[in-house]
Amino acid sequence: MNLTLKIWRQTDAVDKGKIHTYAISGISQDMSFLEMLDVLNEQLNEQGEEPVAFDSDCREGICGMCSLMINGEPHGPEVTTTCQLHMRSFNDGDTITIEPWRSGAFPVVKDLVVDRSAFDRIIQSGGYISANTGSAPEANSVPVPRDNAVRAFNVATCIGCGACVAACPNGSASLFLGAKITHLGELPQGQPERWSRVVDMTAQHDHEGFGGCTNIGECAAACPKEIPLDVISQLNKDLRTAMRHGH
């Protein structure tokens, strides 16, 4: 395959950055998207141009490190992570535009790499169950109804990649936030901190500069783990209930 790549290059956080165009040839259908970029980088290295910086780590779709906006869609045209996207999803002669996640809360570090520490701070603000090591009761002492356990698991599959923010026209992180609220809220262990958690995490979400949700649904469509929109409903409901509980 021969491709034209339009890639966002930006030397550091203060640089304005712009799109550069590269031609690349000899790409196999079996390559992953990131392997295609590896090939480009080898080529750039040979030509004496600094390789394109992009994030990736596990390359098996679970760590959440990869983060590219490909032709206007987070992680590209398939419902998966960028690292699991393969070149057979493209055609010979295609032009592919690659940009970093665009969010005020995710400043660009370099080229396609962004800083997602805002997500860590949202978790710090309350995305946990306080259980000091050693203080846990016997695991089977609290049964968890299977439906709750299944729902908790389904939303706990969030990998924190930020695709939801990247897709959202409002730059909201509600899907990420809602997934954690729902995960912990479904479990009996999560109840004691449930109302303070939703308020603290939402406040942090706003403080980081993420926008408000208008229930458009692009986040859920972009989510590589297919976290459903009901987590946002759950988030709203929990916040409303927290208000009633005086938080």
């Binding site: 940009e99 969010s103 692009e218």
Partner: peptide, 15 residues
């Protein structure tokens, strides 16, 4: 404010 820099290309899948 949440998106100070716009995308060059943006699709609206799911909306």
């Amino acid at each position: 404010k949440a998106r100070p820099v716009q995308y060059v290309v943006k699709k609206h899948t799911g909306a």
